[in-house]
Write a protein that binds this DNA or RNA. Structure first.
Lengths: 229, 229
DNA sequence: CTGTAAATTTTACGGTGTTAATTTACGTTC
DNA sequence: GAACGTAAATTAACACCGTAAAATTTACAG
């Protein structure tokens, strides 16, 4: 006798539609413009109905981040050369990364926004990040297998990513210091990244097993201390 | 006849006091807990009086950022070895940077928070950032003058900073991928940073004058193309 | 048609940033 | 010392916001 429940698929579709709408609002008017009431108005529904699709505003923002991350991954994957030497593949990956941030700086800022719940608390976020990261790892692993890179693929990938992210997050937020542009920094950065890892077979103690650093005083590996062995 | 105006010094002092109070709230309860009403209550004043000291909430947040940046610089300067060889000085600077973020992750996140007005729009922010950056530049310049580093000091400093910032911002936001820790990444990162710049005298075309890149297709400098000269 | 449960809207509460009106406090002048 | 004028500070008000609960509409089985 009761009214039939909406199919989970239909609910998911509406959730997607709302998320897409919220993303539109974000892109045009910024983060502060995102609100359930505004979103509901844009969708032509009452201002509490979004609660059927998102547990809270935080959940909505997480959904937006996931959406952006998936788009990011798809963007990067689409620009990957099908057949290429290992290092050019890595460079293409880096180039695609940069290209994405230049094309969608706001989306990138959303993905890596500070003051956001830790990624570990949302399985969807974790999965999206993992997918993107592991893709990069596979490209790096390919270079390692070919003998042109040396070290642990995940650590190496993370090192590459750290540098790229540092540059792109500053660029997207307009925080590069005056006089220095993305164009002036990206080339030397990538050059250094690549050149370091290809030439040096990761000198034992530092890369494979970093200094214990259980105490919080010494953070950097003391470079002048000779290996005890 | 009129009531005496408060001296600018007294007004500044109160502004400082309110900013310090807001920073306390932020550190304990996070960004969303910062509000004029909450701040006013903590300061024992009416909820609109903060407008005497800050044009808007955005201005308050900017003041907090400036406050954190000044503390950051002071923290780093205090840990600088007075006399040391150029490269150890740079390493100490990097270590101090890392130490600060580990000790005050929330403050660091605030300084570099995304979705904040561009730094160029607030002279105070610009000055604070400039001061911190130029300090680092001087340390790098010292190494260049000693002949142990090669290249443009500002570009080189920015490259160092980008990598450190990439790592620390991910660390502070809890966004490092699972299994990889700050401790495991900081040593190889710094090792690579240092090693690259000391060994390579910045191979002409890439570092000094990056590829034109007026079109937005090619971003990376094509590494395999030999210098025409 | 009717009952019933799901879907949706309406109502309500406490909180926010911000502006305008109002009150308070104090130095100057009579 | 009382009255005045102005700066300081508070109060009142508005339009938002997230969220919870109540009220209502809607769609379908019988």
């Amino acid at each position: 006798m009761p009214r039939a429940q909406h199919s989970p698929a239909a609910v998911d579709a509406t959730r997607q539609r709302l998320a897409a709408l919220a993303l539109d609002i974000y892109r045009v008017e910024g983060l502060d413009a995102i609100s359930f009431r505004r979103l509901a108005e844009a969708a032509g529904i009452s201002h509490t109905l979004p609660y059927r699709y998102f547990d809270s505003k935080e959940a909505l923002l997480v959904a937006l981040r996931v959406q952006c991350m998936e788009h990011f991954e798809q963007f990067v994957r689409a620009r990957e050369p099908s057949q290429a030497a290992p290092m050019p593949r890595i460079e293409s990956l880096a180039a695609a990364y940069v290209e994405y941030v230049r094309a969608h700086p706001a989306d990138y800022q959303l993905i890596f926004s500070t003051h956001q719940p830790a990624i570990n608390q949302y399985p969807d976020l974790l999965a999206a990040r993992r997918s993107l990261f592991e893709h990069a790892v596979s490209v790096v692993q390919h270079a390692i297998d070919a003998g042109v890179l040396h070290g642990d693929a995940r650590v190496l990938t993370h090192l590459f990513w750290i540098s790229l992210h540092g540059l792109m997050t500053l660029h997207a937020a307009g925080q590069l210091v005056h006089g220095l542009t993305l164009e002036a920094l990206i080339a030397p950065l990538v050059t250094r990244m690549v050149q370091t890892t290809t030439s040096a077979p990761t000198p034992g103690p530092a890369a494979s097993k970093p200094a214990p650093a259980s105490a919080d005083v010494i953070v950097l590996a003391p470079r002048r201390r000779k290996p005890t062995a």
